[in-house]
Design a protein around this nucleic acid. Structure first.
Lengths: 343, 343
DNA sequence: AGGGAGATTGTTAGCGCTCACATTCGAAGC
DNA sequence: GCTTCGAATGTGAGCGCTAACAATCTCCCT
């Protein structure tokens, strides 16, 4: 064991142990650990050797106590099993690591402001230096806005209208592009299968759809509302397939589009022969739907990465005025869209 | 500084501030905070009021330093954007919260043992009390086994053959059930689209498939290997569709099955009329594939929850001998399977 | 009324680390 | 040789909290 006569309980080595073994003071060990200047190379080597020999690891709690920095960032997320949130979390984690931070997660039970409050509090109690909120619901974002005074907060994935820094895909222009594409193909108008109310993404995508229709002077059909799930898309599809005047549907996400495709398939309405369908997200599976889905791609990983950069900048105190980052989504054309049938 | 009249910089309140305001000692504040007995109700109320008034929040680093407990658990995960890992993480987080722990994540860059080593080290440096590894690859698990001496570790989602505690779905019996189902429908044999080599799940599912074939005395066709992605399933499907003697395919996961279905659809081989297909996982979309996919359901959330319970039990020091939990998966019959065509 | 046994509260000593400052060392300058 | 100054290292004081123990305070019994 160590230099000593192996006490009964093998205590974790602390800085003083390393110091003694290396024949220096604990402060010198600290200097080596933190890369401080004015340490003679020979001394440094002896310290390093002692560290290795004892398999010493600095106590992060002690360091955090004195430096007042936990080196930890928090992520609040909702529905984190979905592809989007999961990818953002992944992007955040990778970016955080390379910025020297740990990442602690807190998922939301429900999507109300109390729940968000609770999650952020939990993270604060843990001592996180900042928080990224991956909860694109109106109520969540507004709840966060109130908290941002205590800890730096960045929201991601939603077109937050609040005062906090935000990283988001331009949902509106994505939806606009998708809708315009369908109109350009000759469809008289485009129906919309929207996401649940209260989600910023639902709102923005619906708005983009409306804008495109308005720009083309097209009729604005009644919106069908889903809940992001394939099931809800399927149910909506059953209803839609009964409507004769529908030739194009823009779905607020790919999962609902999947359900819609299945419903249309079952009711004998070929896509794109009879109807055209567009999704949103470009999940990895979208290219393998039947038929492959035309959709709007958003790079979730990038979104997470950018959010973290923003947060770190904010922590750095560099009075960054950049408080709203928007990433342009990209329309990906596949076989689920085609020219309007002769009506 | 000390007791002065509101210094220029509003310092975060500490326990002593609360104590002074409540007219008690800091120790009494600590007692209230930790629910220790022997505090007069009136005193408790005054302390609580002072806490509220100052918006005091205990410093977790200080507490961790003295108690030697960080109240944090680590999760190591790979490919965390996939449905399975994401769901497990979610399950783990929820369970951790209700057990009073925070969760810190570390995702793997690559799936080799150095990378796992690195991730676990990172978490240890942060002072986690235990680690859940969601990395069902052979090399990852063996790497973890070596580390488990320093911090309690539990592996989840893989049929680990190592010495560390494990929570897993019984992949073998799930695959067996899927294969048997196809054989029972009259298929002479069942082809297998396997996951990538090196993954425990690939191996176990393949083994189950072999077992079922052997039990039925069926011919064992050459395995086609994919990489879990829909793309690889699609490519495999193109090859498979050229084979005339294939009537049933068991896919190692639902994503590959999706790609396979699409390839079969394109090459004009109806499912289940011409071929039957079974998947594995039962992702939420599987019921909306064309046709709806017969698959083996595993409850990822439950998996995560159980893993966390196991870890907490281990931490509790209750010399739990239960070191391997297996959860039975469930075959879900949908329309992608049917009787073998007349050969 | 006096003497405990509890109940309630306070006091003291660190946890392992970094910060600020004191000290020592080494080589150059007169 | 002795100062001088910067480089290299050491010393002491906490960070904010809990654990252990000491000191009081209650209340009830004899």
């Amino acid at each position: 064991m160590g230099t000593e006569t192996a006490g009964p309980e093998a205590r974790q080595p602390v800085m003083a142990d390393v110091a003694k073994l290396a024949g220096v003071s604990h402060q010198t060990v600290s200097r080596v650990l933190n890369g401080a200047p004015h340490v003679r190379p020979g001394t440094r080597d002896r310290v390093l050797a002692a560290i290795r020999e004892l398999d010493y690891r600095p106590n992060s709690a002690a360091r955090a106590l004195v430096t007042r920095r936990s080196q930890t960032l928090g992520v609040v997320s909702f529905e984190s099993t979905l592809y989007g949130p999961a990818s953002m979390l992944d992007g955040i984690e990778r970016a955080a690591r390379s910025a020297g931070y740990f990442v602690s997660v807190a998922s939301l039970r429900a999507l109300d402001s109390r729940s968000v409050q609770e999650a952020v509090d939990r993270l604060r109690d843990q001592g996180v230096e900042g928080v990224v909120v991956v909860a694109p619901q109106t109520s969540a974002v507004s709840a966060v806005a109130k908290l941002s005074s205590s800890v730096p907060v960045v929201a991601v994935g939603s077109g937050a209208r609040s005062s906090i820094p935000t990283v988001t895909v331009d949902n509106r222009s994505g939806a606009e592009a998708a809708t315009r594409q369908l109109l350009d193909l000759g469809h008289r108008t485009v129906h919309h299968l929207a996401g649940p109310p209260g989600w910023l993404e639902s709102q923005d995508r619906q708005e983009g759809w409306r804008l495109a229709l308005a720009a083309a002077g097209a009729r604005v059909p009644a919106v069908v509302v889903g809940d992001w799930s394939a099931r809800s898309g399927y149910e909506a599809g059953q209803r839609i397939s009964r409507l004769d005047d529908v030739t194009a549907v823009f779905c607020a996400n790919d999962h609902m589009a999947l359900g819609l495709l299945r419903a249309l398939h079952e009711t004998g309405r070929p896509v794109p022969g009879d109807l055209s369908v567009v999704g949103f997200d470009d999940i990895p599976e979208a290219a393998y739907f039947i038929p492959p889905l035309t959709t709007v791609r958003q790079d979730f990983g990038e979104l997470g990465r950018r959010a973290l950069e923003l947060l770190v900048a904010e922590l750095g105190g560099t009075g960054h005025p950049v408080t709203r980052v928007q990433i342009a989504p990209e329309l990906v054309l596949r076989r689920s869209t085609g020219p309007a049938r002769r009506g």
